[in-house]
Amino acid sequence: MAPTLVTNSIRQLRFAHGEMTQQELGERVGVTRQTINAIEAGKYSPSLEVAFRMAEVFGVRVDEVFHYGKPR
């Protein structure tokens, strides 16, 4: 499978929100800790629904969580 060009700022956002753990984010979004880890590492691109739920948890827009192209 070709590497994805979708990058994300989940790690920065987690730390900006009281050093939220992957487990806590996973519970709030409705996925496992391993899935959060895979998304954060760029190994898995989530569905739109999960992407929007993440943005909602962080209180930001989706394009502030996920970016297409070079990492920010």
């Binding site: 409705g30 996925v31 496992t32 391993q34 899935t35 895979a38 898995y44 989530p46 999960v50």
Partner: peptide, 8 residues
């Protein structure tokens, strides 16, 4: 008890 998520 946790249901499978979309990646699983």
């Amino acid at each position: 008890r946790t249901p499978r998520d979309e990646r699983e």
